[in-house]
Simulated scan of single mutants.
Amino acid sequence: MITDARALRHEYVPQDLHHRGGQIDHLSSVLAPSTVELSEDVCLFGPSGAGKTTIAKYTLAQLERERLDIRWGYVNCMADNTPAAVLHELVRDVGLGADLRPEGAARSRAIQRLRNSDDRLFLVLDEVALLDEETLIALWEVPNVSLICITIDEDEWFTALSSQAKSRMQSAATVRLHKYSHSELVDILDSRVVHGLVSARVADGVIEQIADIAAGNAREGIAILRQAAMHVEEREMQELTTAVVDAVVEDAAADIRERRVRSLGTHQRLLLRIIEEAGSIDSGTLHARYEAQAQSPKSKSTRRRYLRSLCRYELIDRDGSTRGTRYIAV
């Protein structure tokens, strides 16, 4: 059934992207201007599953094939949300930090590695709303670095920034993505089938059914397709049918949730565990328990960013506001 498992992973970057040509062209013109001007910074906004990370990686991979003087790196600030971890991952990913160790990668040393490079550096900051502002500004100030900042909620991120950081990031070029339409998501899933499965063993109506369930979220659609293909393989079935899709929808949702939990940093995971253990907990008690259990507690403003991200990714629910806020386990 499965001919290439890579095509069933959400992080897989296909050779051709469907229905994002305009955004890719815009991003390419910003990152590789035809004049001698330096590349701009870019902010990518859009809902989960809209392809933000994919088009950033796709565009940079295309650019890397065309030019010898660029390098690019990627970091997910959801997982690496300490300054040392973010900078170490970026320096390592652009090939400038093989000898650096996370515990020894001081901010100034890592920034200097980037600054000393003769190449143009493009740094993708996924889940940038979780990155501390000081690190963001330090990267912004490196002359040979262009930032590609990715987050879901544009207003929430800008509201949380200081006036200094906000003015700088609002000067960046902006690419906004919408949810995929039903027909667009069908095309994306069809492409994954062609590249990853035996198409003849996928029954009529399956892709349309998955697109209906995913409702414009490519991440969810690909997760359902992957779970359905695994279900057929493991049970040595002849065909992937609509009944198989019905059987794996909950497994796909659980798989997405598990992957998100695995991607969390230490402090986010601790906050999530406290909420799950309580079932429902008021804000004051949550912060008190966190401070009692964390080795080096983060500031309250940072914790609030973490809690917003947990809500955004449907790992917890939130009820109320200010002092009356309660966090509820999902």
Rank of each mutant, 00 (worst) to 15 (best):
A165D: 04
D119V: 05
L225T: 05
D251H: 13
A254F: 06
L8E: 06
D204C: 07
S263M: 08
V124P: 01
E66W: 03
F45K: 00
R71H: 09
E184D: 15
A252L: 10
D246C: 06
V261F: 01
S183W: 10
S34D: 11
T159N: 14
V245C: 08
V244I: 14
R304Y: 13
A229H: 04
S29P: 03
D155Y: 10
I24R: 11
W72A: 00
V206Q: 02
T266S: 13
V330K: 13
Q164H: 14
L123K: 01
S171N: 12
V124R: 01
P14W: 08
D187T: 14
G221I: 07
R326M: 08
E233H: 10
M237N: 03
V248Q: 03
Q268G: 14
A329M: 07
R318D: 00
I137N: 05
K57M: 12
I55R: 00
Q227T: 10
A211I: 12
M237E: 15
D16I: 14
R235I: 04
D93M: 00
E156W: 04
L63N: 03
I316G: 01
P14M: 09
E233N: 13
K298S: 09
A278S: 14
D317Q: 14
L60V: 06
I316Y: 03
L264E: 05
Y327R: 04
D153C: 04
T174I: 13
E89Y: 01
S163W: 04
V245F: 08
A214E: 07
E184M: 12
L121A: 08
L161K: 00
G216F: 12
D99S: 15
V124L: 06
V330W: 09
E220W: 03
A203N: 11
A110Q: 01
N217V: 09
V86T: 15
E40W: 04
D118F: 06
H231Y: 15
E314H: 15
C149I: 03
E141T: 12
A84W: 01
R326E: 12
H195V: 07
Q62V: 05
W140M: 04
V194L: 12
I274T: 04
G284D: 09
G21C: 02
A129N: 13
H88T: 07
D99Q: 13
E258A: 15
H287G: 03
L121V: 10
S199L: 09
L185K: 03
Q227K: 15
